[in-house]
Design a protein around this nucleic acid. Structure first.
Length: 402
RNA sequence: GGGUAGAUGCCCGAGUGGCCAAUGGGAACAGACUGUAAAUCUGUCGGCGAGAGCCUACGCAGGUUCGAAUCCUGCUCUACCCA
């Protein structure tokens, strides 16, 4: 096998251990690494999202770490399981997706995956290929290999049971489905977020049941989102996507709470941890560390130059509070102009910066909308007074009107 | 299959015939302050409308009433107890 680097087993394990909370078991992992063949490193992907977020990137980057050591990344697109909806970490039943929705998401996401993964060492599978073909008899047989008590041990289920919340039958099948994926591709290692521990362990059990060597489970912590509270996820809106523009990426990163800086460095960048502790040493301004963090992240996905530019933009725009030179341009369409006047609410809504006219009125009332630095107080302004000016909506949205 | 309790806005949760677009808390958004951090203070927080006002909303469908989130009937969903 071809590794990009020649490392001892110890060094390999050390590399792989960064950004993980648990490896079950490390001894097994060492044994597998010692085999000297490319390992099949499985990562299940639930195509409920259209963007690869930094949270998701944590595990993808871990796959990439394995790939650099010469192993094969096996990405399982859970097109079948997405229709069930993973109950992990949820206190509610998830809505089920249609096949069409799943398909659309997959297409959108595939390209983004390869911003991180090494294509030549990646295999992509769709679990509908095997799960979708199981007969009812197969399913019953599979069920017989696991007990209700063991399934209910799972945290989310225990909790829901205690809170007298519903648990549907199809949800308890989820871990088994995921376990079958491991059986099907004969995984050596399965990666996952911490919340996947239960599912991944079921995979180990099932593999043994089916006469295979149990996979090693490598768990990563969940990246906390920009809100500093919940795990980063698209549905919560607290995410940074790998296809965000450099400026967005930079800005969003700057908005995270200070307590998250170290964690983000560890999980989302390659900066050596020793350097991170220096950056965050007592007496230093956390802001500087955060700037570095933001630059690192932008650099990973857009390159060093873009990172420099994003920093410059950030400093100019938010530090010095000047108007951004290169604000996104927004053309005022003729149909928005009436008798030479433009309705501000309609304009802002049309630009997608607010969801209703009422919301824009509130913003105007609050002084949150300005033109070239001057607060807008009227709901209707002359078209001529708008063109060429930069409109600021809220804290960070700028549009150069044309 | 039988019984009991419950379903309210993004979430929790008050409201038992008019004063309810619906108390309160949280979340969210915005303003001030700052480092687009935290904390704090202030404001907003269903939609449309310049406004008067109109529309949509309290699980679903009907009904009673001048008037219903609130009463009645049927249905759906959930939990618990019994089988």
């Amino acid at each position: 096998m071809t590794s990009d680097v020649a490392l001892s087993i110890d060094e390999q394990v050390a590399l792989l251990r960064r950004g993980t909370t648990e490896i079950i078991s490390e001894a097994d992992l060492r044994a597998k690494l010692a085999l000297g063949r490319p390992l099949r490193v499985k990562l299940g992907v639930d195509p409920t999202a259209k963007d690869v977020t930094l949270g998701w990137a944590v595990v993808l980057r871990k796959v990439r770490d394995f790939q650099r050591l010469g192993h094969t990344g096996c990405i399982i697109i859970g097109d079948f399981t997405a229709q069930i909806g993973d109950p992990s970490g949820k206190s509610k039943t998830r809505k089920q997706l249609t096949r069409e929705e799943v398909q659309a998401n997959v297409e959108a996401v595939k390209e983004q995956l390869f911003k991180i993964l090494i294509p030549e060492r990646t295999e992509i599978f769709y679990n509908a290929d095997w799960l979708g073909k199981m007969t009812f008899e197969d399913v019953i047989r599979l069920c017989s290999r696991y007990t209700v008590a063991r399934i209910l041990e799972r945290d989310d289920f225990t909790k829901r049971l205690a809170e007298q919340r519903p648990i549907s039958m199809h949800e308890i099948m989820y871990p088994l489905c995921q376990g079958m994926d491991s059986v099907e591709i004969n995984a050596d290692v399965e990666l996952g977020g911490n919340d996947q521990k239960f599912n991944n362990l079921v995979g180990r059990t099932l593999m043994e049941q089916y006469g295979l060597a149990p996979q090693v489970v490598v768990l990563s912590p969940l990246l906390v989102g920009t809100d500093g509270k919940e795990k980063m996820s698209q549905s919560l809106g607290n995410y940074v996507s790998v296809i965000d523009t450099p400026n967005d990426m930079f800005g969003k990163t700057m908005s995270i709470p200070d307590e998250l800086i170290a964690n983000w460095f560890e999980l989302a960048t390659d900066v050596p941890l020793s350097e991170v502790s220096e950056l965050l040493a007592p007496g230093t301004n956390p802001r500087n560390a955060k700037v570095r963090l933001a630059k690192e992240i932008v650099g990973l996905y857009h390159g060093v130059e873009a990172a420099e530019a994003a920093e410059q933009y950030f400093v100019d725009t938010f530090g010095k509070k000047t108007q951004p030179v290169d604000a996104e341009e927004a053309v005022i369409l003729p149909e928005w102009v009436e008798d030479g006047f433009v309705s501000i609410p309609a304009l802002v809504v049309a630009l997608g910066l607010a969801k209703s006219n009422g919301a824009v009125k509130d913003l105007v009332k609050a002084g949150a909308i300005s033109l070239d630095g001057e607060k807008v107080t009227e709901l209707r302004l002359a078209h001529a007074d708008l063109v060429g000016k930069t409109m600021k909506v809220g804290k960070h949205e700028f549009r150069k009107l044309a």
